[in-house]
Amino acid sequence: MDVNILLFKLTLVVYAVATSLYLFSVVVNRPGSDRCGRWSLMVAFFIHTVTLITRFVEAGYTPVTNLHESFSFFAWTLAGTFLLVDRRLRMAVLAATTSTIILVLMLFGSLMPMQVQDLNPVLDSFWLPIHISFSFLGNAVFTVAFVAAIFYLMQERMLKSKKFSALYYRLPSLDTLDMINYRCLTFGFPLMTMGIISGAVWAEMSWGTYWSWDPKETWALITWFIYAALLHGRLTTGWRGRRAAILAIVGFIFVLFTFVGVNMLLPGLHSYTSMAG
């Protein structure tokens, strides 16, 4: 078995440990109880980085060309993004939820064929890492925004209805959650834009046209418009709170569909990563 696959499995286990520790710290709700979770997540992220480098060396190309690699890479960008967010905010509930998502991504990744395959010649380009990094980083940032939005809505509901569950005592303030929404938007939107532009440039070079309305492109564009609307609304008319949270959730559903759904349901030029590999 390849070293990178062994490492991938090890990474998966450490993510599982981090997730359990975070969940435990949410349950006990003590100050500082999320420390173990944070350390394991950092360790997991480090091993994951080694895993990706190993796979890069063993495969000879940036490992983002099939579903296994995509899930793994997405999980990696999400972990990295979250660790950056977490440096300032330190919130066990967000951490537990995000690391659960990371774990699920890794589990999906482990269910896909994991062997290194020959690279599709179309993908053999330095644009691959550029295009993919921008797109995936954008997706990762939007995932964090999505998690914050879900908790915003839950907390807003509790504050409006005046019925507080155990979660209430574990959530950060509405303002903090809304701020995460805004920050993620200001980082995620440019990343996503760069992802689309770099894709278009690459398409021009390999397919001879900037834009060919293949399903991935179309759905990415729709997603882009949703986040553009949200950003515009926030900056001009003061959309915030509940409305911003709902749009962040809608946007994320489109992100998910563009990322996974299109590959499974709508064949097109981007179908290098269909289930068949």
């Binding site: 003590r30 504050l159 303030s173 303002d175």
Partner: peptide
């Protein structure tokens, strides 16, 4: 220090301050 026993407000006026914190952060 190890439990949250004094964590949440038990007077009406302080509960209002805590709710404000939950809404505005600070």
């Amino acid at each position: 220090t190890e439990t949250n026993i004094a964590g949440n407000a038990v007077s009406v006026s302080f509960a209002a301050v805590e709710l404000a914190r939950k809404i505005f952060g600070s």
